[in-house]
């Protein structure tokens, strides 16, 4: 039980570096929300379509929070002593994530804040499932829409990130729980 508490609420960070903790919590919660938001794109399971994606994207602010906290993490590493602790991998990952999130959010922001047409969820859904079932098909509605450029970048960086994921220390997302269990004994 306590291991869960340690893993998800990061009490040690809250105690020793409260500002960092606020950003960490914001970042991880927002990240989770966004992942949940993307589930909607998997059409085959009805259960994912129950809630509208509005709920998870929080009127575009989730993406904004995410981008800001990623920038915070990145700039934090520019300052000693964190700069001396960091290795290139740390920067690459943050930049990659930032680009993914930023271009992803762009699509959302454009639609909401600048009235830039619709986000064709149905077409996205089709595109993703066509990829999943190994019959890639890109509807022309997607490529012709104003978002296409952003979409391409978003998908490109997301793919890079996913490729890097298992080989990087982002694995902490899976290892954190067993590690904290180890400490609690």
């Amino acid at each position: 039980m306590w291991a869960l508490h340690d893993t998800f609420l990061l009490p040690t960070v809250r105690r020793h570096n409260p500002i960092f903790w606020v950003f960490l919590m914001l970042f991880h919660i927002s990240f989770l929300l966004l992942i949940t938001g993307h589930l909607e794109l998997i059409g085959d399971f009805r259960i994912f379509q129950i809630a509208q994606h509005e709920v998870f994207l929080g009127k575009g602010f989730v993406g904004l929070i995410l981008s800001i906290s990623l920038l915070f993490f990145l700039f934090r590493r520019f300052v000693s002593p964190n700069r001396d602790l960091s290795v290139p991998e740390d920067y690459y990952l943050l930049i990659l994530l930032f680009l993914t999130v930023f271009f992803g959010s762009q699509m959302d922001w454009a639609r909401r804040w600048y009235d830039y047409g619709n986000l064709p969820i149905v077409e996205y859904r089709e595109y993703l499932s066509s990829l999943l079932y190994l019959k890639p098909h890109l509807s022309s509605d997607l490529t012709s829409s104003g978002h296409s450029f952003m979409l391409v970048l978003h998908v490109f960086f997301a793919n890079l990130f996913l490729m890097f994921f298992p080989f990087s220390q982002v694995m902490h997302s899976f290892l954190s729980l067993p590690m904290n269990k180890l400490r609690r004994g």
Binding site: T12, V13, H16, N17, F20, R76, P81, N82, L85, S86, V87, D90, Q169, M171, H172, L175, S176, P178, M179, L182
Partner: peptide, 19 residues
């Protein structure tokens, strides 16, 4: 196993700086 976890997981977040 534990040692591998210890080696893999560090994100160099720097919270341990003051420790």
């Amino acid at each position: 196993e534990a040692m591998k976890f210890y080696l893999e997981t560090c994100t160099r977040c720097g919270v341990c700086t003051e420790a």
